Computed example of a mutant assay.
Amino acid sequence: MTPLDLSTDAVTLTRQLVDIESVSRNEQAIADAVETALTPLAHLVVTRRGNTVVARTDLGRSERVVIAGHLDTVPLNDNLPSRLEGDLLHGLGTCDMKGGDAVILRLAATVPEPVRDVTFILYEGEEIEAEFNGLKHLAESDPDLMTADFAILMEPSNASVEAGCQGTLRVEVRTTGERAHSARSWRGVNAIHGAAEVLARLNAYEARRPVIDGLEYHEGLNAVRIGGGVAGNVIPDECVVEVNFRFAPDRSEAEAEQFVREFFEGYDVRLTDSAPGALPGLDRPAAKAFVEAVGGGVNPKFGWTDVARFTGLGIPAVNYGPGDPTLAHKQEEHVPVEHIERCEARLRAWLEGR
């Protein structure tokens, strides 16, 4: 494997990262490359846990900031290797989020004496179940490595600040019936037909849109999968509708779960996954200072990101990274070169106190 060149520009470095395939659970090669590139830098203390790499300055500054990005991607979709077409860099992970990772590595390599101490974290397992998440593991094994006054997660945000994030939970809504031969269907009860009311309720759902710290969030309750049936000649006795609720950060996980259970009153509802949202926290001094430094407005984050992990630790955090988040996970995923360059320039100026 060609070593990462941290002396090159961030766009070229993004291509190098993208061309190291790192689908979730296959991050060892990219973590090896990152660790190998960072370890020789004398101003950094490098620690590795699994396929998560942490690099820290230790200058005794009065403030410490975490700048973090995940190394894994969703599965390939005929979108490797990377290719540069005009002002757009195409390829798996360009937007989500190796453009941000390249900025992190460039800053780690080329800002040896920042005005605030920095912890750079490049971690594994963000795109899959929480049990594999590198930040989760790090918070459990080495919480001191995540200690900071402020955190920046370089998720794609159109090179603007996106504050907070929505919470997410998934439930299975189950209908039951009675099996029978389809030739004598009246002797059974069709569980799939019974799911019609579940879908009708979802279709009639009206989204709540609360305003928090001046930002309007937009909740969403949707069926994302449905399954049922035994055989082509059998009336099914069970149907399961999987529902995803994206809830605003002014709801706790318990409140979100209660809302969903009340919404599907009368049905068997089983919680299968849940993660809390994160309040914007724009009233915190560190967050205010960062927003002023990078300029531009602030938008709400509609998806779930690991900013929630930092806010759960009492660390205010924002999303700030190159790329359009609506392109994440798409076959045509790409990132504007200008976004990568802008994020690097503004973060560099902020870290250097300019």
Rank of each mutant, 00 (worst) to 15 (best):
S62D: 15
E27Y: 03
R342Q: 14
A275M: 14
G227V: 10
T326C: 06
F290S: 01
D237G: 00
L38Q: 09
G93L: 08
D117C: 09
P280T: 11
H218N: 11
T110Y: 03
V260Q: 04
N77K: 14
F310C: 04
A183N: 08
P280Y: 06
G60A: 07
N190G: 02
L347W: 12
L92H: 03
L271Q: 03
E131W: 10
F247K: 13
E155G: 06
N319Q: 13
H334T: 08
L279K: 11
R61F: 12
R170S: 14
L199M: 14
N222M: 11
V171Q: 06
D117E: 09
P143M: 04
A139F: 15
P40R: 02
A286T: 04
D87T: 15
R48S: 04
M97C: 00
E129Q: 10
L38Y: 12
F259S: 08
E253K: 13
E131Y: 08
F132M: 03
T168R: 15
G232E: 07
L105N: 12
A223D: 07
S7E: 15
R201H: 01
F259Y: 14
A195N: 02
P143V: 05
P300Q: 00
R15P: 14
C95E: 04
L313N: 07
V11E: 05
P40C: 08
N79I: 05
D306R: 04
E257H: 06
I104P: 10
V189L: 11
H193M: 06
D5S: 05
L138Q: 12
L199V: 12
V54W: 03
Y123W: 10
G277W: 04
F247V: 07
L135P: 04
L347M: 15
R354G: 05
V65C: 10
L6E: 01
V291D: 08
I104F: 08
R251T: 03
S22V: 14
P236S: 02
Y320T: 03
D58S: 13
P325E: 04
